[in-house]
Computed example of a mutant assay.
Amino acid sequence: MVAETLRDRRKRELRRQLSDTATRMFLERGFDAVRVADVARACGVTEKTVFNHFGSKEALLADRWDTQLDALRARLADAAPLDAALEVLGEELDFLVASARRHGWDEVRRFGELVRSTPALVAHHREARDRLTEAVAEHLAARTGVPEADPVPHITAAAVAGLWTVFALSLQRHQAKGATRMAREVRADLARAADALRRGL
């Protein structure tokens, strides 16, 4: 494993500062009421610097999608798509539980409510799920040697990416139960959904 350089560590720390600051401001004022320039000023950097780290205002809040997509691509090299997806979602669930312990479960719930109630963030999440679907379809087409336009990799990828929808709905359904019990229920829902896909696929 390559050791992290000082420059890389500073970039990672700044990225986290920008995301944490933006999240706090969005939760306090609402997503539409906060400009990227406001986040930049609060962090003592330029607006251009923010966009060097995040491709859009939405990505400041929903920055976990790139992490999940990178993790999924890495796992697809060695694991079946369903197993790869379950591993990535399991790690995302662990991240949410850790965040709840760090910031309080109420803040995590407010975060989810902000995403669901903001059209731009809903659209951002849909676009991110589309990218996940495309990544799985490309992998399956390459692995099986079929053309990229073949319908089988695409319908299979859409089914696998559907686990992210199950994940989001399960989080919402069980969020009142507290982080530990919620995590157990979400894992159970994901396992049931994956079993259904294994039988169908």
Score class of each variant (00 low, 15 high):
Gln68Ala: 09
Asp78Val: 15
Phe51Glu: 08
Ala141His: 05
Arg143Ile: 04
Gly55Asn: 03
Ala191Cys: 07
Asp189Pro: 06
Glu185Leu: 10
Ala59Val: 06
Leu201His: 06
Thr180Trp: 00
Arg12His: 11
Glu138Asp: 12
Leu69Ser: 00
Leu89Gln: 13
Gly55Cys: 10
Glu185Ala: 05
Glu28Lys: 13
Arg64Cys: 02
Val115Cys: 10
Ala191His: 13
Glu91Asn: 04
Val36Arg: 04
Ala159Lys: 00
Arg131Phe: 10
Glu4His: 03
Glu4Asn: 05
Val34Trp: 09
Asp32Leu: 11
Val152Ala: 13
Pro153Gln: 11
Gln172Ser: 02
Met182Pro: 02
Asp78His: 13
Glu107His: 06
Asp70Trp: 08
Gln17His: 10
Glu138Gln: 07
Ala22Thr: 04
Arg109Tyr: 04
Arg131Ser: 06
Leu132Cys: 09
Thr21Cys: 12
Glu13Lys: 14
Lys177Cys: 03
Ile155Gly: 00
Gly200Val: 11
Ala194Phe: 03
Val166Ile: 14
Arg15Ile: 00
Ala149Cys: 00
Arg41Ile: 09
Lys57Thr: 10
Arg7Met: 13
Trp105Met: 04
Thr144Arg: 12
Leu171Gln: 08
Val186Tyr: 11
Asp8Arg: 13
Asp195Ala: 10
Gly145Met: 11
Pro151His: 15
Ala168Glu: 12
Gly90Ile: 09
Ala40Tyr: 11
Glu138Met: 08
Ala183Glu: 09
Val88Cys: 06
Asp195Gln: 08
Asn52Thr: 03
Phe54Asp: 03
Ala62Cys: 15
Ala74Asn: 07
Phe167Ala: 00
Ala59Ser: 14
His53Asn: 12
Arg12Gln: 14
Arg199Thr: 11
Ala77Val: 13
Ala22Asp: 03
Arg10Ala: 15
Leu197Ala: 00
Ala142Ile: 02
Ala74Arg: 12
Ala193Cys: 06
Val2Tyr: 09
Gly162Leu: 02
Ala135Asn: 10
Asp38Arg: 12
Gln172Val: 01
Trp164Asp: 07
Thr144Tyr: 15
Gly200Pro: 04
Arg187Asp: 05
Glu87Trp: 08
Ala40His: 09
Arg9Ser: 10
Gln175Val: 13
Ala188Arg: 15
Leu86Trp: 00
Val88Thr: 05
Thr156Glu: 15
Glu91Trp: 10
Glu91Leu: 12
Glu4Pro: 01
Glu107Pro: 05
Val88Phe: 03
His53Trp: 02
Leu190His: 07
Arg24Cys: 01
Val160Gln: 01
Glu92Gly: 08
Glu134Cys: 03
Val34Asn: 11
Thr165Asp: 10
Asp8Trp: 06
Ala100Asp: 04
Gly30Ile: 06
Thr156Val: 15
Glu13Ser: 08
Asp106Pro: 00
Ala128Gly: 01
Val2Glu: 14
Val108Trp: 07
Ala22Leu: 07
Ala74Thr: 08
Arg10Val: 10
Thr46Tyr: 03
Thr118Leu: 02
Ala194Gly: 12
Glu185Lys: 10
Phe111Arg: 13
Gly44Cys: 09
Trp105Gln: 06
Val45Ser: 07
Val136Pro: 02
His124Val: 05
Leu18Lys: 08
Val97Thr: 12
Leu197Tyr: 00
Thr118Ser: 12
Leu140Phe: 14
Thr165Met: 05
His53Gly: 04
Gly90Pro: 14
Arg184Ser: 11
Val108Pro: 02
Phe167Asp: 01
Pro119His: 09
Phe26Arg: 04
Gly55Trp: 12
